[in-house]
Amino acid sequence: MSEFIPPGPEAKVFVISVAAELSGLHPQTLRTYDRLGIVSPGRTGGGGRRYSLSDIELLRDVARLTAEGLGLEGVKRVLRAPAHRTCAAGSRRVARVGSRGGAQRARVDAEPPRPRIDRGAARRGVAA
């Protein structure tokens, strides 16, 4: 008997429930990402989805980006960028985008709150 050789990272072997558990996402979210073209799982003869390790890494990147506040259209643009073609470059790109978003959010959070204007004060006869 020959020695067992495990499948590579591109082998589409994980059913949707396992891929959802490994990526930390709900199975319905995976179906939505498939429908939007964010991830492209393989299909069985009966139409069942099969995900690879690379797909699961991609789903984790998507989850990280959306947690940072990036919308799905932004996620699609990041994933289409040439820097995301390799896993290492993709991780750097995700980190860069995430850190930029955090810096912008920190800058907005650091601004003092604007004073509230009571627009109904004049109608009520109250001095503003």
Rank of each mutant, 00 (worst) to 15 (best):
G101E: 07
Q28W: 10
L30Q: 02
E21H: 08
S40V: 10
F14Q: 05
T44V: 05
A110W: 11
A63I: 02
E111R: 12
H84Q: 13
S17I: 03
R35I: 03
R43H: 04
R114W: 10
R49C: 07
V39R: 01
P115G: 14
R93A: 14
V13E: 07
V78W: 01
L59V: 11
A95L: 09
A67N: 04
R119G: 15
T86M: 06
A67S: 06
E10D: 15
D118R: 10
S52L: 09
A95F: 10
P82L: 09
G71S: 08
A19D: 00
V39K: 05
G45M: 09
S52W: 13
V62P: 01
Y51Q: 11
A63G: 06
G8I: 03
V18Q: 04
P6S: 04
P113S: 10
A121T: 11
S91A: 14
V78Y: 03
L72T: 05
E3F: 09
I16L: 02
V94P: 01
G42I: 07
L70Q: 05
Y33H: 02
P113M: 13
R49D: 08
P82A: 10
V75Y: 05
E57K: 10
A122D: 13
V126E: 15
S99W: 10
E68K: 00
H26K: 09
S2C: 09
S17L: 01
G125M: 02
